[in-house]
Write a protein that binds this DNA or RNA. Structure first.
Lengths: 216, 216
DNA sequence: CAAAAAACTGTACGCACATACAAAAATTCA
DNA sequence: TGAATTTTTGTATGTGCGTACAGTTTTTTG
């Protein structure tokens, strides 16, 4: 969930007008600065002033290159997605059996360099804000459905719909819950989180189901 | 987790000075108004103005009866705890076997009248804020340890420490994750959530462990 | 029924923030 | 080089917020 969270459709990228090299550079710098501030201070602490400061620019520059704060945030989310989804997709492509795909999804949801309190808190910030902000809510929906379809690709043909819904909710919920725990500072190694989710997955699936998953 | 969340030690209550009847009444009204605002708008939307408005009073009244906004929040949390914990405690007392206790804990974590997007969002608000606010962080720690000790009382003598840690993390994480999913508006009946957590618990425990739990 | 105390009102102050924008600096171009 | 354009700066404006408090109304008291 959390990794998929950093995803967004690149629609605005497609209709982007031609820009100067400097404009592209500055936008990139600001987005990266926003990313750093976001990770360190969370969503509510991500002020325009801090972003500009982190980028080494004057406080008013943001409104010159972006429509507003939200604009930067969404650009930032796009950037993160591009970086993070590569790993997940690569893992999924290497997988041969359905069980490998399941493992790839779970492992991909706990990247060692991201499963940290700061990142988890930043993610929580957006989860919380999505209750009032339609933009974030839409984002959440996209990410949720991506995890869902990833899991569906792993379980396709093995689990009946009803049972798939149960397993997917358990695994997805557990993944989210572990990120939430990490956000509160609980000491939890990514490998331990992966192992736990896999343990639950094994426990939840019957032996015949597991055989099917490992051979398909 | 979420139910325990509304818990707080009644220390400030104990050292409370004698108050007029009106003062107690107004404080109560303001706390209940804060609760309503909190549930509807989340933590960040819980402004003093809105609270006073919801209580049908003038905007400055809050600073007359409370030290500040935080003061109201913590009073509100105390109130919620008193209301909600009664149900959980009652269930725990009726339980005879350890398995009954486990069921009581899980059921108590998904009260039908509370497992709703508004409440879940409010809970998430505080989870998020606890990363920066030490007061909220302390609250979180108390609630977490309460769930942990509740689970420990159910599994005592049956699971070795290491295995208990695993099961407790899985169940606690799943509970949190399901609340988080509810916060995003996912349609999820409390009974379904309870059933899911119980299913995972059954799947995670060996048959001999389950026998021990059901007879102790 | 005054006088005193309590309860309440509305406003004003200070702060943090997003955003807009005029002016200045840097860069490009002819 | 000198004008035109782009880029950057610093600040100003407006908003929303928590809080304090002087003043007003209501209640209690003797």
């Amino acid at each position: 969930m959390c990794v998929q969270f950093f995803d967004l459709i690149n629609e605005t990228m497609a209709q982007a007008r031609i820009r100067t090299r400097i404009e592209d550079l500055r936008r990139k710098e600001l987005i990266e600065a926003a990313h750093r501030v976001f990770m360190q201070h969370g969503l509510s602490g991500m002020t325009t002033k801090r972003i500009c400061e982190a980028a080494g620019m004057s406080p008013g520059i943001l409104s010159y290159y972006f429509k507003g704060k939200e604009d930067v945030l969404f650009a930032m989310v796009r950037l993160n997605n591009r970086l993070l989804m590569e790993g997940v997709v690569a893992r999924l492509k290497q997988a041969t059996t359905r069980w490998d795909r399941l493992e790839a999804i779970i492992i991909g949801n706990f990247p060692a360099n991201l499963f940290e309190p700061n990142v988890a808190n930043a993610w929580l910030s957006v989860c919380t804000a999505s209750s009032t902000n339609p933009g974030y809510a839409r984002l959440q929906r996209v990410l949720y459905s991506r995890l869902q379809s990833n899991l569906a690709s792993a379980f396709a043909g093995v689990l009946p719909p009803e049972r798939f819904a149960q397993v997917a909710l358990a695994l997805g919920g557990l993944i989210d819950g572990l990120w939430l725990r990490r956000a509160t500072g609980e000491h939890l190694h990514p490998d331990a989180a992966i192992a736990l989710v896999l343990t639950v997955a094994s426990a939840l699936l019957t032996s015949t189901e597991q055989v099917l998953l490992r051979q398909g």
